[in-house]
Amino acid sequence: MRLVFWVGFWTFLLDQATKYLVVHWMNLRTLHEIDVLPPFLNLRMAWNYGINFGLLGDPSGITRWVLIAVALGVAGGVLWWVRRDPPGAAGYAAAGLMVGGALGNVVDRLLYGAVADFLNMSCCGFENPYAFNVADIAVFAGAMGLIFFTGHKNAPKNAP
């Protein structure tokens, strides 16, 4: 569980540090866009009031608190799961990524009322209209890690 804590801590810290750097220090909230390595990597300010791709977005407030509760519930559920059924180092690291990323987005919703998304990547003639952040990457990677690195010890040994 110590690995879950440290991976979650550093994930959360990296997420919040990059958001502070880009949104405040580089002033992306006012500039709205900064080309870094066009078209591959750009910074595009997007306030996400909903879930993935802005779905269920509602700046009025109730969605904000529901999504905070859901993120905290997911983080708590992941912690409960890995405590109850220890997955090994890779599974613990994946759990830490999910928890750290989820808490990073919770802090955004508490501070700004929305999640600060700013990374935009396009390639090969396709212009991606969406932005994401370090927490989103961590949650996705953590979820994939939990799928691939947990639950194997309960599988039947003679399965075809």
Rank of each mutant, 00 (worst) to 15 (best):
A143P: 04
P39C: 11
L79A: 14
L56F: 11
A46N: 11
R109G: 07
G77P: 10
A71Y: 05
N52W: 15
L67W: 02
G61M: 03
G113Y: 00
V4D: 04
W10C: 10
D85P: 07
K157V: 11
I147K: 07
F12T: 08
C123T: 14
L56C: 02
V139R: 01
G100A: 02
L3K: 09
T63H: 15
V134W: 00
V7P: 08
A46V: 14
G76Q: 14
L119F: 02
A95D: 03
T30S: 11
Y112K: 05
A114S: 09
A135H: 01
V107E: 11
H32K: 10
L110E: 12
F132S: 01
L13H: 03
L41S: 06
T30N: 10
P38W: 10
V82L: 09
L14V: 02
N105L: 00
T11P: 07
P156C: 06
N105R: 01
G77K: 12
L79Q: 00
W80P: 11
A90D: 08
L119K: 04
N158Q: 15
N120H: 06
V36F: 01
L28P: 07
F9E: 06
M45H: 15
G57H: 08
C123V: 14
R44E: 02
G57C: 09
G113N: 02
N42M: 08
M26L: 11
E33P: 13
L3P: 08
G100E: 03
G91M: 05
A17D: 04
A46C: 12
E127G: 14
R2V: 13
G142W: 06
A94P: 10
G113V: 09
Y130I: 03
G96C: 09
F53G: 00
A93D: 06
A138R: 01
W47S: 07
A131E: 02
G142N: 00
N154K: 15
D136M: 10
G145Y: 00
L119H: 03
P59T: 09
G91S: 02
G91Q: 05
W47K: 12
F140Q: 00
A71S: 15
A155W: 13
N154W: 15
F149I: 09
G50S: 05
L72Y: 15
A90R: 15
S122W: 05
A155H: 13
Y92G: 11
L146I: 00
P160G: 12
I68Q: 08
D15G: 04
D15L: 03
T30G: 03
W81R: 13
R29Q: 06
W10T: 10
V22G: 04
M45Y: 08
I62W: 12
L13T: 14
L56T: 15
F126Y: 12
A69G: 13
T11C: 14
L119Y: 00
L13R: 07
T30I: 13
G8T: 03
W6G: 07
A90T: 12
I51P: 10
W10V: 09
D15F: 05
I51Q: 04
D136C: 01
G50D: 12
P39E: 06
T11F: 04
F140A: 09
A71V: 13
W10I: 12
V99Q: 07
D136F: 03
G8H: 08
I34P: 02
L119W: 00
F118P: 02
R2F: 13
